[in-house]
């Protein structure tokens, strides 16, 4: 298939960017979206031009590196997949596709389609963990955990930290990302000791990093490649309110 691409090009975080139009030819419908970009880049490199920079690594939808806004959709039109898993058969021959970086103030563009998502890491650093030093952990079976609790925790823990939730949200809110981690640990007995401080610090950090406020449009859930539920956001809110309005001394 042949396609026309409008790709955001930006040399670095300080230079303003703009769209450049490219055409790519003879793309196999079995190729992934990133492999289609590889073909474009191969052409560019052969011409001595700088290839389009994009983040990617595992190319099997688990590392969370890739993340491109494709025709206004985070990770493209297909549900439940990351950009690397999106296949070109989702498009039609002759399509014109607009390719943009994930945009949000806390995700500044580094180059072209690469954005800096370390704000997510800083949120995790503010409390997205159980403080256990290596050594001295009790036997793994010492505390039984109900199967449904652990399954629910797992569903939240599958977040790959790609940032599609922020990119898709009209408010640039990181609620789904933060809520997934808060939920994961709040559902497990191991997470109880720091349950209150965790949600408070993580929400404070999220706000401080400059993410927007959630207005419950649920676009995050629709675009999440791991289909993490917004019920996690409800749980995060509950955890936050519980602490601030009830348990706080």
């Amino acid at each position: 298939m042949n396609l026309t691409l409008e790709v955001w090009r930006q040399e670095n975080s300080t230079t303003p960017g703009g769209f450049v139009t490219y055409t790519v030819r003879d793309i196999s419908p079995d190729a992934s979206f990133l492999e289609m970009l590889d073909v474009l880049n191969d052409d560019l490199v052969r011409k001595g031009e700088e290839p389009v920079a994009f983040d990617h690594d595992c190319r099997e939808g688990i590392c969370g590196s890739c993340g491109i806004m494709i025709d206004g959709r985070a990770h493209g039109p297909q549900k439940g997949v990351a950009t690397c898993e999106l296949r070109m058969r989702c498009f039609n021959d002759g399509d014109r596709i607009v390719v943009e970086p994930f945009r949000a103030k806390p995700f500044p563009v580094i180059r072209d389609l690469i954005v800096d998502r370390t704000s997510f890491d800083r949120i995790i650093q503010s409390g997205g963990f159980v403080s256990v030093k290596t050594g001295g952990a009790p036997d793994a079976n010492a505390i039984p955990i109900a199967k449904n609790a652990v399954d629910e925790a797992f569903d939240a823990a599958t977040c790959i930290g790609c940032g599609a939730c922020v990119a898709a949200c009209k408010n640039g809110s990181a609620s789904l990302f933060v809520a997934a981690k808060v939920s994961h640990l709040a559902l497990l007995p191991q997470g109880q000791a720091e349950r209150d401080t965790r949600v408070v610090s993580m929400v404070a950090k999220m706000d401080l990093e400059g993410f927007g406020s959630c207005s419950n449009t649920y676009a995050c859930e629709a675009e999440c490649p791991k289909e993490i539920s917004v019920s996690n956001i409800a749980r995060m809110n509950r955890e936050y309110l519980r602490f601030n309005l009830i348990t706080q001394k």
Partner: peptide, 22 residues
Amino acid sequence: GNIIDQCVAQGVPFAREYGGLL
């Protein structure tokens, strides 16, 4: 064996049986 203990303490959600054990 210690690795499993350590990971569970960190909150790694390993699969469990209905009785709550791993």
